[in-house]
């Protein structure tokens, strides 16, 4: 009996050790450290800021104009696993990320790891941002430093068990975080590559427009890339934006550009819901970027709405 107990304890310790080892939060590679001393460009960073949609969650909900640049968080995402309270990422040293180093920022953006070595929840779309290039991370960091510090205090997330155990996210990341380009665009067409980077990486469009694998709890189901699905906040549906007839197959590239600029579909129905904020961010990009997005969206496989 005693031996059995010792045996069980050994198995439990071994199991826990394997879990602990598998779920160690990752950080940027020391071989890229020379990148840290490079200087960032806040003007390039601003484009990344709008393309990345940071303000949609980190500014107060419904913020307009200059208030979109007050990144105090305090916006709640109510989902089936609980409520995510979006943190302050303004340059405030006490409540925001003003006291972070650029490595801390890169670890958050590229690995979903916090400065104190914990996993962030993928409500923060690092799964998409992980394929950002280092220079862009630096530019974005430099831009965010120029914004107004906001004093808003962070609130903890309010999640149900087992989702409240953040260490378990290490397993989720092992299964779903590894980035593979969804569309093989080759490296001869720079314009299409730019569209891919804007949609797959910075714009993180797939986070909502692609249905999730593993009963909705996994990463994006890439075989159904951008074909729409249930809304992550549990109310209504996210549209199919592939070139299928149940998606935006009837739209021209110019229609897509116009939608992102103005918020109107070819039938003059308007943007709505959480997409309004996304559209307003995209409208701040250079027109050539919107054209690259349009070209990419017309190039991906047509998939029927499920």
């Amino acid at each position: 009996m005693k031996r059995l107990a010792i045996g069980l304890l050994a198995v439990a310790i071994l199991g826990f050790s394997v879990f602990w080892w598998l779920t160690i939060p990752k950080a940027i590679d020391s071989t890229v450290k020379d990148w840290i001393s490079k200087s960032g460009d806040p003007i390039l960073g601003e484009t990344i800021f709008w393309a990345g949609g940071c303000a949609s969650c980190h500014a107060v909900k419904g913020a307009k104009g200059k208030d979109k640049l007050k990144l105090g968080g305090n916006h709640s995402l109510v989902t089936p696993v609980g409520t995510f309270n979006v943190p302050n990422i303004s340059p405030d040293r006490e409540n925001g990320i003003g006291a972070w180093s650029v490595e801390d920022f890169a670890n958050a953006m590229l690995h979903g790891t916090s400065p104190d070595g914990k996993h962030y929840y993928p409500a923060f779309p690092y799964t998409s941002y992980s394929s950002m290039n280092y220079d862009d991370v630096k530019h974005l960091w430099t831009y965010i430093q120029t914004l107004e510090p906001v004093k808003t205090q962070n609130k903890p997330h309010d999640l149900t068990f087992p989702f409240n155990i953040s260490r378990g996210l290490g397993l989720w990341k092992l299964a779903f975080k590894e980035y593979q380009p969804v569309l093989n665009v080759g490296n001869t067409d720079n314009f299409l590559q730019r569209g891919q980077y804007l949609v797959e990486t910075l714009g993180h469009c797939g986070e909502c427009h692609t249905p999730r694998a593993s009963l909705g709890y996994g990463g994006g189901n890439t075989s159904r890339w951008l074909s729409g699905g249930p809304a992550p906040e549990g109310n209504g549906k996210i549209p199919n934006i592939t070139p299928h007839e149940t998606g935006i197959g009837s739209w021209s590239e110019a229609d897509i550009v116009y939608y992102l600029e103005s918020g109107f579909t070819p039938d003059f129905d308007s943007v709505g819901g959480s997409m309004t904020s996304v559209q307003e961010n995209m409208a701040k990009l250079p027109k050539s970027d919107l054209e690259a997005v349009a070209k990419y969206l017309k190039t991906i496989p047509a998939v029927a709405l499920n």
């Binding site: 809304a231 209504g236 549906k237 129905d269 308007s270 819901g273």
Partner: peptide, 17 residues
């Protein structure tokens, strides 16, 4: 005039398709 469409659709409409 047109800004009013999305002003209302952002909070008071839910996409179903």
């Amino acid at each position: 005039v047109a800004k009013n469409c999305k002003a209302c659709h952002t909070d008071y409409r839910i996409k179903k398709e």
